[in-house]
C-alpha cells in the first residue's frame, strides 16, 4: 500500500488549530470560546469539537449579543448550538440597551464601545474566564497581522501592541496573574479563502445570509445596507430589491452586503478567487478612521 506523509494546506492549518485549542484547554482553569455566529466562529467550534472527539467541548461558548444582529443569526445560533449540544452563554450590556444605545444616535464607534467591547469585558469578568478563544485571523486587518496566537491582556482587558510576549516555536507562555487573561486565536493563520474551502470540505453549516438572495437594501457609498425593522435611512434613500449576499456578519445597521449571485459555497469560492476587495470593507465601522481597529483592540475589542 502506498502511504502518504504529506498534509494539505487545510490539514496543516487544522492540525495547528487543534493543538492551540488543546493547549489552552489544558493550561487554563476556566476558558471560554467566543461565538459570534459567523463563518469563522462556525469553523472554530467545528475544530474544537474535533480536538476533543469523541468527548464534548470542555468549555462553554459565549455570545456577546448586541441585540442588533440579523434575525437569521439568532435562529441559526439557537438551532446550531442545540444540535451540537454546546453549553451556550449569552451576555448583553443590559444597562446600555435599556438606555437606548444605537448606532444611529450615538455613532458606530461609541455604540460598538458600549454594546461590544464593554459587554465583552463585563462578560469575561463576570464569568471569571482566564482565557477566551476568538476567531480573528491575521489576514483580516493590518493590526490583526501583528497579533500573537496567545495574546496577553492586562487586568482591564487591554492589549499593548508594543509590549507583546515573544512567541517562539509553538511553545506558548500561559502564565498569568489573577485578574489577567489571555485571548487565544486558533485561526490566526487562516485566510478567508481557507475558511470557505474548509466549510465546503467539512460541510459545516453557516448562516444563510452568506448566500445570495434578493434582499431589501439601500445603496450608499458602494455599500448595500440591509433594510430591517428599525433601520434608519438618509432623506431620499429608497430601498430596492437587489441580488446580494453578506461576506461578513455583524450588527445589521452596520454591516453591508455585496452584489453577488453566489448561491452555493462553490460559487462563493469561485467569487472569492476573483474578488478585489477585502472582507472588512463591508463593515461600516472600519471606515471611521485610519487605524480604528488598532484603537479598539487596545481597549479590549477582539
Amino acid at each position: 500500500m502506498h502511504e502518504t506523509y504529506s498534509l494539505t494546506n487545510l490539514q496543516q492549518l487544522e492540525a495547528e488549530s487543534i493543538a492551540i485549542i488543546r493547549e489552552v484547554a489544558a493550561e487554563f482553569e476556566n476558558p471560554v470560546m467566543l461565538y459570534s455566529v459567523g463563518k469563522d466562529s462556525s469553523v472554530m467550534v467545528h475544530l474544537a469539537r474535533k480536538a476533543f472527539r469523541p468527548g464534548k467541548i470542555p468549555f462553554p461558548l459565549l455570545h456577546v449579543d448586541t441585540s442588533l444582529k440579523f434575525p437569521e443569526m439568532y435562529e441559526f445560533r439557537d438551532s446550531f448550538c442545540r444540535e451540537i449540544g454546546a453549553d451556550l452563554r449569552i451576555h448583553s450590556n443590559r444597562a446600555s440597551l435599556e438606555a437606548g444605545t444605537n448606532p444611529y444616535d450615538l455613532g458606530t464607534q461609541k455604540c460598538c464601545a458600549q454594546l461590544k467591547t464593554q459587554a465583552l469585558l463585563d462578560a469575561l469578568r463576570e464569568g471569571g474566564y482566564d482565557a477566551a478563544f476568538g476567531g480573528a485571523r491575521r489576514e483580516e486587518e493590518k493590526s490583526r497581522a501583528k497579533e500573537r496566537i496567545l495574546s496577553f491582556r492586562d487586568r482591564h482587558g487591554q492589549w499593548d501592541p508594543k509590549n507583546q510576549r515573544p512567541e517562539i516555536w509553538e511553545v506558548y507562555n500561559t502564565r498569568i496573574n489573577k485578574g489577567e487573561s489571555i485571548r487565544a486565536f486558533p485561526l490566526s493563520n487562516w485566510t478567508e479563502l481557507d475558511i470557505w474551502q474548509y466549510v465546503a470540505q467539512e460541510k459545516i453549516p453557516v448562516v444563510p445570509l452568506y448566500f445570495a438572495a434578493e434582499r431589501e437594501v439601500v445603496e450608499r457609498d458602494r455599500l448595500l445596507i440591509p433594510v430591517y425593522p428599525g433601520a434608519r435611512f438618509l432623506p431620499g434613500e429608497k430601498p430596492s430589491r437587489v441580488m446580494c449576499r453578506f461576506r461578513t456578519l455583524g450588527c445589521h445597521p452596520c454591516t453591508g452586503a455585496i452584489h453577488s449571485s453566489a448561491r452555493t459555497i462553490e460559487e462563493i469560492i469561485a467569487e472569492m478567487m476573483i474578488t478585489r476587495q477585502s472582507e472588512r470593507i463591508t463593515r461600516v465601522i472600519d471606515h471611521d478612521a485610519e487605524g480604528s481597529m488598532e484603537q479598539k483592540k487596545r481597549e479590549g475589542y477582539f
Binding site: R138, E139, K146, P161, N189, T191, E290
Partner: peptide
C-alpha cells in the same frame, strides 16, 4: 507596516504576518 506608531516613525516594530498564494504554493 501595520501599526499606527510604526507608520508614524516609518519603521516596523513588531512581527507582522502576511498571507499570499500563487497557484503553486500558499505562503505565510
Amino acid at each position: 507596516d501595520g501599526l499606527r506608531a510604526e507608520r508614524e516613525q516609518g519603521i516596523t516594530i513588531d512581527v507582522a504576518y502576511r498571507h499570499f498564494a500563487t497557484p503553486r504554493r500558499r505562503f505565510i
